[in-house]
Amino acid sequence: MAIKNILALVVILSVLGVSVAQKGLNLDYYKYKCPGVEATVRRVTEQYVSRQPSLAAALLRMHFHDCFVRGCDASLLLKSPNKDAERDAIPNLSVRGYEVVDAAKAALEKKCPGVVSCADVLSLVARDAVLVIRGPWWPVPLGRRDGRISRKSEANLPSPFVGIGELKKNFRVKGLNVKDLVVLSGAHTIGISSCALINTRIYNFTGKGDSDPSMNPSYVRSLKKKCKPTDFRTPLEMDPGSVKTFDSHYYTAVAQKKGLFTSDSALLDDPETRSYIETQVGTGGSSFAKDFSDSMVKLGLIEILTGNKGEIRKKCAFVN
């Protein structure tokens, strides 16, 4: 890791140190309770993601979806016999990568039974998955505990179909600011979606057989070549031409009005988010890696459970 990146991370930790301590987390939380936690999780994550690099985006998305509902408590991982848990909600039906978290947790259970929470495992797996594809590193303070409640009805996640006002509100109520919104949207640089989620946007935006006027016409034409009117399955790159590389190219695409979702295009409708996009385009993404690291640390602190709250699950899919 370059010296300048190390120094930047020292600044991150010093700025967030008080907040992290107040929330009961610690970078060395498992130092004596279960030495080598991070090395174990990294080894398992590398085994999976090196074979299937697309898991990096999937696991990053899983972490985001978990933290936005009931906080970072691994409630997304819980299964329900009645299919009414978070993972059964429509936005989460396409979430994948559970096997990676389960494998890392199983390895830790052999090493230190009942010590490491699934919430911490998921936070580490998301970070390490991005590292495998040479994305940015961020510190993961540890000590989260697992929630016992997971409700399908509570999975009100930021929608790809909404405008900037709704997105800002979604993030604000979770303690994330406008910069976090535009920075974390940059995770779409490695994302894959499908024709199903943009069908209306390119074929019947207002009910009159038209396309969304906020999209680049040439981009609409290219999407129509890939997605026929009745095609809801074909996969689409969220950052065309750069989907395998974690970089700032996503902002170039958005600036060219080639954002795949309404929520991507909406970033041009706010002065602050638009300014950030223009800065990243103009500087070749000079601050994106550091900014992403900062925002991921904040994401990982949302509404966490510590102390006597929650539990340490033996298996991530089931409460004890």
Rank of each mutant, 00 (worst) to 15 (best):
L60G: 12
R61L: 14
F64A: 10
F64Q: 13
H65T: 09
V69Q: 09
L76F: 06
L76K: 09
L78P: 00
K79Q: 11
N82Y: 15
D84H: 10
E86A: 13
P91M: 13
L93T: 13
V95H: 11
V95Y: 09
G97E: 03
Y98N: 08
V100D: 02
D102A: 14
A103C: 01
A103M: 00
E109F: 06
E109V: 05
K110W: 00
C112Q: 02
P113F: 03
G114R: 06
V115M: 10
C118V: 14
L122V: 02
S123M: 04
S123D: 01
S123Y: 03
V132M: 01
I133K: 13
P136V: 00
W137P: 07
V140R: 12
D146H: 12
I149N: 14
K152P: 02
K152A: 07
S153G: 15
E154P: 02
A155M: 05
N156F: 07
P160C: 13
G163K: 07
I164G: 06
I164F: 08
G165Q: 14
E166M: 12
E166A: 14
L167T: 05
K169D: 08
N170V: 14
F171T: 04
R172K: 14
N177D: 15
V178C: 02
K179A: 08
V182E: 01
L184H: 11
S185T: 04
S185K: 13
G186K: 04
